[in-house]
């Protein structure tokens, strides 16, 4: 790369999440928290419930209502996301960038070799790396499973008992899976990772610094640089 041709990117920021995506993320995390808390409340051991004292019965009632309201908001958010992905230009670009490919498998193996210090070369990630793709798509699958099983349990009288037995098992297991995955996978990536603590700012203003982009998504960074260079050159 010709050094003189490189555009200085000191203090330069790029948009990683646009407003739509940020709103979707805010709805998702807030409803997820409410759903996880109100959901796991039924799994609490009896002895722990003494902290609620005399309000236990009311709390149980409100718990059920809150869980359902949050669930409906989350499902509407899923529909919003599906529409955004299919109808808008940035949505479609997000979808196509998110599609997993053979490169992700290669990236994973290369990354493992890099982590284990067998190889010195870090794989070059595009806009979304394999971690983000995995999280995104397992999120969709889990969301759909938990939505359907949740509806079966909500309108229980229309379904056979065995269906409900399976639903309650899958619903709870899926919730355990999702919550622990979020805690281990996502919280580490955006909160606890060295250099990120206490949190990455992308979820608040959607901005990523050019430096960070070059470090974490080099292929996308190169593409942007290319495009900017072309536009600079044509301007001249």
């Amino acid at each position: 790369m010709n050094e003189s041709n490189k555009i200085s990117d000191e203090g330069k920021y790029y948009t990683r999440l646009n407003l739509h995506e940020r709103i979707q993320h805010h709805i998702t995390w807030s409803t997820f928290f409410i759903l996880a808390i109100t959901g796991f409340m039924v799994e609490l051991p009896e002895e722990m419930l003494t902290v609620f004292g005399q309000y236990k019965e009311n709390i149980f009632f409100l718990r059920g209502i809150t869980h359902r309201i949050a669930a409906v908001i989350m499902i509407l958010n899923l529909i919003y996301q599906a529409l955004y992905l299919s109808l808008t230009k940035p949505g479609r670009s997000l979808f196509f960038d998110m599609v997993p490919g053979f490169k992700d498998a290669k990236d994973f193996l290369r990354n493992m070799l890099y982590y284990l210090r067998i190889s010195n070369r870090k794989p070059l990630f595009d806009r979304f790396n394999y971690k983000e793709k995995m999280e995104y798509w397992t999120g969709w699958i889990g969301n759909i499973i938990i939505t359907f099983t949740g509806f079966f349990l909500w309108f229980e009288q229309y379904f056979p008992k065995f269906f409900l037995d399976v639903s309650i098992l899958v619903h709870t297991m899926e919730a355990i899976l999702a919550s622990s995955a979020i805690m281990v996978w996502h919280f580490y990536e955006v909160h606890l990772k060295p250099g990120k603590f206490p949190m990455s700012r992308i979820w608040l203003d959607g901005k990523i610094s050019a430096h960070e982009l070059e470090e974490e998504h080099p292929l996308q960074y190169q593409r942007i640089q290319q495009a900017e260079r072309v536009s600079v050159n044509t301007d001249l």
């Binding site: 796991f40 799994e43 609490l44 051991p45 229980e156 009288q157 229309y158 379904f159 056979p160 008992k161 065995f162 409900l164 037995d165 309650i168 098992l169 899958v170 619903h171 709870t172 297991m173 355990i176």
Partner: peptide
């Protein structure tokens, strides 16, 4: 369960079966 159907009201309510558990 005022709208209980025969399909809903069958099987074991508390079997020695399986349940998802956290604790």
């Amino acid at each position: 369960h005022p709208e209980a159907t025969p399909a809903f009201a069958q099987g074991k309510i508390h079997p020695s079966g399986e349940k998802a558990g956290f604790f």
